[in-house]
Design a binder for these strands. Structure first.
Lengths: 201, 201
DNA sequence: GGGTATACGTACCGATCGGTAACATTGTCA
DNA sequence: TGACAATGTTACCGATCGGTACGTATACCC
């Protein structure tokens, strides 16, 4: 019996492809538990697929981890650009908006920090696919923060940009170390104090 | 034939006990490559001992990791107290000395950050033996930094203490992420700016 | 309906994981 | 000499690791 809807085919209605399901599950498990802590068997089991499906979509577990981080990277910059767009031409307010959001996220019960940062800690070896993605993300973040510090008119803009990066990374880490009530909740306040001090020069 | 030196026995001359050799090697490998990345087989091989020796001295790999961190903790506070003792009664200078030293260490080629911080990232699960040691160390560090901020006469001492902790953790992480020339080299400068701003209140 | 390409599952691989049982060897001290 | 404590030796355990050879099902096109 012919379908009543003629040409609405696998593109739109169909259940997600195996590769997508795998990446979704991997993203969740890798972020919450760590990449090394999760085996491919658990990923395919929770995704409701089988192992060969994983290796048809990804050449290796390391590359799956890199794919997870590439997606993380996209979403990170979405959030970053959202804070920027909310305060056009006002980099200090952009930073404040971004850090206020981070500060709030770090107070959530199961906060696990930044997937990029965590991956770099898990894979210190240079050239590892996951680490490459992580390093590129951080380099770009540093570049943007320094550019924003310059736009603010800071005397030593590179130092201020780097100081903001230190505060951000510190928030990621202490957020997952201390949980709610930890030092990360004051990241926006401290960043603003640092900016204030750097502009007065 | 009796020995010429009568009672200089196993305590002083003898080669280190198996447990000590294991802990030495484990400390080195765990710090540089990560705890999860290193198997017990490699530890005993590099230590020149056998696996049963490891499990006679340590009940499990997790407990060996905890022992590594307990030793790390002792050495950490040695360094911290050294900076404190160098500037009696001057908490601001104590912080400056401690952070200058961290900033320098982060610029070394194979810097791998803080073993405590890294372990907490590797083991997010609450109650893990390694994580317990790490969390205790960080809690104490936070307590001391806040006390020092109070002693400096900061208006909002808890915020300043937490801000310093964020900068420190940020230095640990970005030190291993960026290598030499990274943002961590400015940690002491940024901390001083932050202190300056916090005292002016 | 038959051909074909894509997608998936079953079953398996060798290697390594953390951990242990049983016994031989050594040096120390009484 | 004889007991004791520490270590080494060898061989092994079940579980899990990342990864793959190969057969099967499904959907589309002609």
């Amino acid at each position: 019996m012919k379908s009543i809807e003629p040409t609405i085919k696998a593109d739109e209605v169909a259940q997600p492809r195996a590769g997508e399901k795998i990446l979704r599950v991997a993203r969740d498990l890798f972020y919450r538990q760590g990449i090394r802590a999760i085996g491919v068997d658990e990923i395919v089991r929770r995704a409701g697929v089988t192992k060969p499906s994983l290796y048809r979509s990804f050449p290796s577990k390391d590359e799956l981890a890199a794919s997870y981080l590439r997606q993380y990277d996209l979403e990170f910059w979405d959030r970053f650009d959202e804070a920027v767009a909310a305060h056009p031409g006002d980099p200090r307010a952009q930073i404040a908006a971004f850090l206020t959001r981070i500060g709030k996220r770090t107070q959530k019960p199961d906060y696990r920090g930044c997937g990029m940062t965590n991956a770099a800690v898990e894979y210190p070896e240079r050239g590892h696919p996951a680490r490459v993605v992580s390093e590129a993300n951080k380099q770009e973040l540093r570049r943007r923060l320094r550019a924003m510090a310059t736009a603010m008119g800071a005397g030593d803009a590179d130092t201020l940009g780097d100081g903001l990066l230190l505060l951000i990374e510190g928030a990621y880490i202490s957020g997952q170390l201390f949980g709610a009530g930890g030092p990360a909740k004051s990241v926006a306040r401290n960043a603003d104090l640092l900016i204030e001090a750097s502009l007065k020069k």
